[in-house]
């Protein structure tokens, strides 16, 4: 009896997992193995017949180039600051929205717009708006009596502007998940704390935020993974400039792979990015203990 029950339980689990597993294995494992293979060769599209195994040569070249370390630092900086800003904004706005009573559905719809608009149109609009001479941002600053900014001109401003655009586009994602989490919260502990005379800030930080965290953790993980790979915004707005101040790892991989056609080297960059993402998200997920199923059947 017992073993037949276990068998049918196992069969159920297997059947439920099989379809997604087959699809993902077919579509991600094969390209992954091929990419790892590429990264160990000097494969270049310009000399497709001269392919040779060079071991860890690409990785050694990568780790010894200042270009790589510069790009890695910018990528990490961009990801951490952008996701941090989006988290603060998204959760803050969601918390305020949670208590709002007027025009809530209109606000919700407006907050979703940046995620809904076709990205290429939005990014090119930002390029126009950032233009120091013709752009509307500097026009607004000037009418308010503030000095015009060279939005994409200096290394620091360029990174700040890129983070602003990324946050414009993706704060809604965090906001959405945080809003859902808030609505789902058990209000009882909050009510009890309120009765004990805790202020709204104390309640938010000591009770609401910890209860919200499982939701936010998923949002943070996905947003970080995507931010780490950000491409369009940087490509259109600065193309990695000024100099190489905003040339991230993914931009570097694009340059090497698509523009220079050095597929082996580009694959090595991609694999390094993958490893960094895996390690970082493992550390994070283990820390927040998001792995274990809660209700164990």
């Amino acid at each position: 009896m017992r073993s037949s029950a276990a068998r049918s339980r196992n069969r159920f689990i297997l059947l439920m997992l099989a379809p997604a597993t087959v699809l993902l294995a077919g579509l991600t494992l094969i390209p992954f193995v091929v990419s790892v293979g590429f990264s160990l060769t000097n494969y270049s599209l310009t000399a497709p017949n001269d392919i040779a195994f060079i071991g860890l040569g690409n990785y050694l070249a990568l780790f010894s180039s200042s270009e790589f370390w510069n790009a890695a630092w910018i990528t990490v900086l961009f990801t951490v600051v952008a996701v941090g800003l989006q988290l603060v904004l998204g959760v803050g706005i969601a918390a305020l929205l949670h208590h709002e009573t007027r025009a809530v559905s209109a606000l919700r719809l407006i907050y979703l717009l940046p995620m809904a608009i076709t990205p290429v149109a939005a990014v090119f609009t930002f390029r126009m708006m950032f233009n120091p001479t013709l752009g509307v941002f500097n026009y607004i600053l000037k009418t308010m009596g503030l000095p015009a900014q060279d939005w994409l001109g200096s290394p620091t401003m360029a990174l700040v502007s890129l983070i602003l655009v990324d946050s414009w586009q993706w704060t809604p994602f965090i906001l959405l998940i945080a809003a859902g989490g808030l609505a789902a919260l058990d209000e009882e502990p909050l009510e009890a704390a309120r009765m004990d005379g805790a202020g709204p800030m104390a309640i938010f930080f000591q009770h609401t935020l910890p209860m919200l965290f499982p939701y936010l953790a998923v949002a943070i993980v996905f947003r970080s993974i995507d931010a780490f790979k950000t491409f369009d915004i940087i490509f259109v707005l600065t193309n990695g400039g000024p100099g190489v101040a905003t040339r991230t790892l993914n931009l570097l991989a694009y340059k090497q792979g698509i523009e220079f056609l050095s597929m082996g080297y580009a694959a090595a960059i991609a694999i390094v990015m993958l490893i960094v993402t895996i390690v970082a998200s493992q550390l994070f997920l283990r820390r927040v203990d998001l792995f274990k199923p809660k209700a164990a059947l």
Partner: peptide, 20 residues
């Protein structure tokens, strides 16, 4: 113009056509 370092053909052409 200010921000010259971020000018591509698009910015040059737009600025010229706007009389800037």
């Amino acid at each position: 113009p200010i921000g010259s370092g971020n000018y591509h053909w698009m910015e040059c052409l737009n600025d010229f056509m706007a009389g800037a």
